[in-house]
């Protein structure tokens, strides 16, 4: 083999280590967009194409006259990656504004879930009692089932769903997270 002398050791880059050790953390982004055909595909396609995570996504029109929708995305990444996600979103032509609620400060996060449970006797009553403890509402009932409506933080819903498992969980439908900042100011 050849006598390959390694190049002189250079001091490690200050950035490489920073990038490698930074922690991944969840961020909640609010994105105000023109409600036009394809806008959701653009946003979702950006995440898929650049390899970013989507942990939750909700979208609905929030200003009918202005044709504007608000998309709430929960993503995770290093602070650098999330900043990059924000800039990439801002680059999309129909995007008006992007706010990283996690960076901006305190915010309220809510999700709605409907949880269907099937069972008889003690299991059925246990499911009902638990739902009351979680401030759930019964939105449908048969002699052998309940469907509960539950609003809260994603972790509260996770917890409730886990509790329903042993008492006859059938299925869950969740809306994904809607979020808004605390305090008097808009995004």
């Amino acid at each position: 083999m050849n006598a390959l002398t390694p190049p002189p050791a250079s001091p490690p880059s200050p950035y490489s280590s920073a990038l490698a050790t930074s922690n991944t953390e969840p961020h909640t982004l609010s994105v105000l967009v023109d409600n036009e055909p394809g806008v959701l595909a653009r946003v979702v396609g950006l995440f898929a194409g650049r390899g970013y995570n989507i942990e939750s996504l909700t979208v609905a029109e929030v200003a009918h006259a202005e044709h504007q929708s608000r998309i709430t995305i929960v993503t995770s990444g290093t602070p650098e990656a999330v900043e990059q996600i924000r800039h990439q979103l801002e680059r999309l032509v129909p995007v008006h504004r992007v706010t990283d609620l996690t960076i901006k400060g305190h915010f309220v996060e809510r999700e709605l879930a409907m949880v269907k449970v099937r069972g008889k006797g003690e299991n059925r009553m246990e499911a009902l009692r638990l739902s009351e403890a979680f401030r759930g509402r019964v939105v449908d009932a048969t002699t052998e089932s309940f469907t509960f409506e539950l609003t809260g933080s994603p972790s509260k819903i996770d917890q409730f769903v886990e509790l329903m498992r042993p008492v006859g969980l059938v299925e869950v439908s969740r809306t994904g997270v809607a979020a808004i900042s605390r305090g008097p100011d808009g995004m």
Binding site: S13, P14, Y15, S16, E80, H87, Q88, E90, R91
Partner: peptide, 21 residues
């Protein structure tokens, strides 16, 4: 990348904010 210009300060002028960092 981890050996890219290790000792320098860097100024980046770009019209695209997503290019920076």
């Amino acid at each position: 990348l981890d050996a890219f210009s290790p000792g320098s300060q860097k100024i980046h002028i770009d019209i695209d904010p997503s290019s920076i960092n």
